[in-house]
């Protein structure tokens, strides 16, 4: 559904953010990308979002190349990035064009209902807590019914309780709407709780070190032995990728 074909990104300064990255993501699949800072995981997301162009290679959604923000792709950033001059409802309706006014209103109401903020429709963004604002951002991205939703460390700025709450929330939204989810995170546990596959990246140049399939049924028990085992596995790969330079791994 999402196809990333041997994508490289070299920034004008010469930094090799991504080198020859390829990845296929199925419809309604949840893929989490983890890695240390500077591994190019956010760059990868920006390329899929169409906010940046790859230096070589290409990104496709249902065989259609992405060269600019695509109507079938929604984005949630690390910060809510709500428009402060619009009410919560207006923010959620921001990406709805084309549909008639009553239709838009119904969609906004449904989206707010889904994130549990139906009674906050007329508030201003600055009246929301961090978790509420990020839920509005989720609703805003999902209201146009994208086929793929990209999330760039969406819960990293929240406290642990709110984060776990929003992770569950994201899963129930996904269950209902079945979009493809591509999630960038530096939180291994978050990746393991949410994803069907975890892509581990390493840096200099940014590339995929390993892809871990997570076969555990949902909802996942964060303290089960299997979960622990997967966590150790992911940590082991990550440990390699940030402690040892590439040639050392090759030498092993």
């Amino acid at each position: 559904m999402l196809t990333i074909q041997s994508v490289s990104k070299i920034y004008p300064g010469g930094a090799h953010a991504l080198s020859n990255v390829s990845l296929d993501i199925d419809a309604a699949e949840i893929v989490a990308v983890i890695g240390g800072s500077g591994c190019g995981k956010s760059t990868l997301l920006r390329l899929v979002a169409g906010l940046d162009r790859p230096s070589s290679g290409r990104v496709l959604i249902d065989h259609e190349p992405i060269s600019a923000p695509h109507p079938a792709v929604g984005v949630v950033f690390q910060e809510p990035r709500l428009f402060p001059w619009l009410t919560v409802a207006q923010n959620v309706g921001f990406g709805l064009s084309g549909a008639s006014k009553p239709q838009q209103g119904a969609r906004v109401a449904a989206a707010l209902q889904r994130v549990g903020l139906a009674d906050h429709a007329r508030r201003w963004p600055r009246q929301l807590s961090g978790g509420q604002a990020q839920r509005v951002a989720l609703a805003r991205a999902l209201a146009p019914q994208p086929r793929a939703l990209l999330l760039d460390e969406p819960f990293s700025a929240l406290d642990a309780f709110t984060r776990a709450d929003l992770q569950d929330h994201l899963l129930s939204l996904w269950d209902e709407l079945r979009p493809t989810l591509l999630l960038v995170t530096h939180d291994i546990e978050e990746a393991l709780v949410l994803a069907d596959r975890v892509v581990v990246m390493q840096s200099r140049p940014g590339r995929i070190a390993a892809v871990l399939p997570i076969a555990l049924p949902r909802p996942r028990d964060r303290i089960s032995p299997e979960f622990d085992e997967l966590k150790r596995e992911a940590l082991r790969i990550l440990g390699h990728s940030w402690r040892a330079p590439p040639h050392a791994i090759a030498a092993e």
Partner: peptide, 17 residues
């Protein structure tokens, strides 16, 4: 009327997210 969104200081909702 166009800046009403700024005029809400101190009315932050304290509910948890």
């Amino acid at each position: 009327p166009f800046l009403r969104w700024q005029d809400t200081l101190g009315q932050t909702s304290g509910e948890g997210g």
